[in-house]
Amino acid sequence: MRSSDGDTFPAEGGIRGRLLVILGALSAFAPISTDLYLPALPDAADDLGTSASGIQITLVVSMIGLGLGQLLMGPLSDRYGRRGPLLVGIVLFTVASLVCAIAPNVAFLAVFRFLQALGGSSGVVIARAIVRDRLDGPRLVELFGVLTVVVSVAPIVAPVLGSAILTVGSWRTIFFALVVIGGLLGAATFAWVPESLAAHRRNTDGVVTGAFRSYGILLRDGRYVAVIATSAAAFGAFFGYITGSPFALQKVHGLSPVLFSVAFGINGLCLMGAARWMRYGNPQRRIAIGAGLMVVATLGLVIAAVTDQLAPILVAFAVLATGYGTIAPNTTALALMRHPERAGAAAALLGGTQFAGGALAGSLVGHGAESGITSLVVVIAAATAVTVVLAAVLARSS
Results as ranks from 00 to 15, higher is better:
Leu59His: 06
Leu66Arg: 04
Val225Lys: 05
Ala361Lys: 08
Asp5Trp: 11
Phe355Asn: 05
Ile32Gln: 02
Thr307Phe: 09
Gly6Cys: 08
Gly240Ala: 07
Leu394Gly: 06
Gly65Ser: 13
Ser170Leu: 00
Gly351Phe: 02
Ala328Asn: 15
Gly206Val: 05
Gly254Thr: 05
Pro257Gly: 06
Val131Trp: 05
Gly366Val: 01
Val146Ala: 07
Gly372Cys: 06
Thr322Val: 10
Val302Gly: 14
Leu98Ile: 07
Pro329Gln: 00
Leu249Gln: 08
Val365Glu: 12
Gly169Gln: 11
Ala391Arg: 05
Pro194Asn: 02
Ile327Gln: 07
Pro31Ile: 03
Pro39Thr: 00
Arg83Asn: 10
Leu390Thr: 03
Val151Lys: 00
Pro39Lys: 00
Ser122Val: 06
Gly357Pro: 03
Val149Asn: 09
Ala248Met: 12
Ala391Asp: 10
Ala369Thr: 13
Val207Ala: 15
Val208Trp: 15
Gly54Gln: 09
Leu350Arg: 03
Leu115Phe: 15
Gly362Ile: 02
Thr384Val: 04
Val88Pro: 04
Phe108Met: 13
Val377Cys: 07
Met337Lys: 01
Val227His: 05
Val88Thr: 12
Gly265Met: 08
Tyr280Met: 09
Glu142Leu: 02
Pro10Glu: 00
Gly123Arg: 04
Tyr241Glu: 11
Ala40His: 11
Ile380Glu: 04
Leu166Gln: 11
Leu59Ser: 07
Gly67Arg: 05
Ser397Ala: 15
His339Gly: 04
Ser214Ala: 14
Val262Tyr: 10
Ala248Ser: 11
Ala30Ser: 10
Tyr324Phe: 14
Thr387Ala: 09
Ala127Asp: 06
Thr58Leu: 13
Ile64Cys: 13
Ala129Lys: 01
Thr58Asn: 07
Arg83Gly: 13
Val388Met: 02
Arg139Gly: 14
Ser371Lys: 08
Val378Tyr: 09
Ala318Asn: 07
Arg338Val: 01
Val379Thr: 05
Ala359Val: 02
Val193Pro: 06
Gly81Met: 10
Ala335Ile: 03
Leu271Ser: 15
Phe114Thr: 04
Ala248Glu: 06
Leu23Ile: 05
